[in-house]
């Protein structure tokens, strides 16, 4: 598996477009957005935000970007790009005789998870670095920031939820890419799936956290609300079950389709 994974890593690193837009653009945009917000406050008020900031809980809140539909669109580009490479360049013929299809599927899946985790790590690191920089630049030194155990727990939970949500996205996008042998189809499907939640919530006048739809974005929102903001435990647990269901079903679908796929052309 290590050899397969290092090969997949090399292929992704050599495709900087997919690497950037798929896995780095979201943390980069989050950092840019937060920076713009801080600068706006400074420009309007002549000073930074008052009070102290718990940098761990601040980073935890920023991780809710994993439920953003545009973030899903960008992450889906990265995930679909990883799986679509072999179809695009007709290179399954090199890999399939050398390794079992479950291993090939797992290596790509794992690569996506590694980069998504790294992306979330960048979001956390960026947010913490920004809070620290703002505190230092506003002349408050390190007194403008605090680090608490609760904040650390919150960050760990937020990271787990965000990672879980993106793992479900990986399962969905990989299955659709394999099924359709198309990157565009997978990206659009993932985007529409996330967008559907927002539209249904608006159309049915549902609460975005208490009323859980059987869709990943809704389930993740309920789970996040339960763990991070003391929301409904029932909705949160239901969200957890729904996410597990999507992860298991879509991973199995992707794997089974790939195992049975006739590669007459790749």
């Amino acid at each position: 598996m290590r050899a397969l994974l290092s090969g997949e890593m090399l292929k992704l690193i050599r495709q900087p477009g997919i690497l950037f837009w798929g896995f780095v653009a979201v943390p980069f945009c989050v950092l840019l957005f937060r920076l713009s917000l801080e600068m706006l406050v400074v420009v309007r008020t002549g000073r930074g935000m008052p009070g102290t900031v718990d940098i761990l809980s601040s980073a935890a809140k920023t991780l809710s970007v994993s439920g953003n539909s545009v973030a899903h669109l960008l992450f889906a580009i990265g995930i679909a790009g990883v799986f679509f490479t072999e179809y695009r360049y007709a290179t399954w013929r090199h890999l399939v005789p050398r390794r079992g299809r479950p291993h090939l599927f797992a290596a790509k899946f794992l690569l996506c998870l590694i980069w998504l985790a790294a992306g979330l790590g960048l979001v956390v690191f960026g947010d913490m670095a920004l809070n620290l920089a703002v505190s230092l630049l506003s002349g408050r030194g390190s007194s403008g920031i605090v680090v608490s155990v609760d904040g650390g727990l919150m960050l760990a939970e937020a990271f787990a939820v965000a990672f879980f949500e993106l793992a479900v996205l990986t399962a969905v996008v990989s299955a659709v890419t394999i099924l359709t042998r198309s990157m565009i189809a997978a990206v659009i499907f993932a985007f529409v799936l996330t967008l559907t939640v927002t539209l249904l919530q608006l159309y049915l006048a549902l609460s975005d956290t208490a009323d859980v739809l059987p869709l990943p974005a809704s389930a993740a929102a309920a789970l996040r609300d339960w763990l991070l903001f003391h929301g409904s435990a029932e909705a949160g647990q239901l969200g957890l079950v729904i996410l597990f269901g999507w992860l298991a079903a879509m991973s199995a679908l992707g794997l089974v389709v790939f195992l049975r796929q006739e590669l007459t052309v790749e």
């Binding site: 292929k11 050599r14 360049y89 007709a90 290179t91 013929r93 090199h94 790749e266």
Partner: peptide, 11 residues
């Protein structure tokens, strides 16, 4: 070597 040789153009 099956059919036309196809490779990753970026490697």
């Amino acid at each position: 070597l099956v059919e036309a040789a196809s490779f990753y153009p970026f490697l």
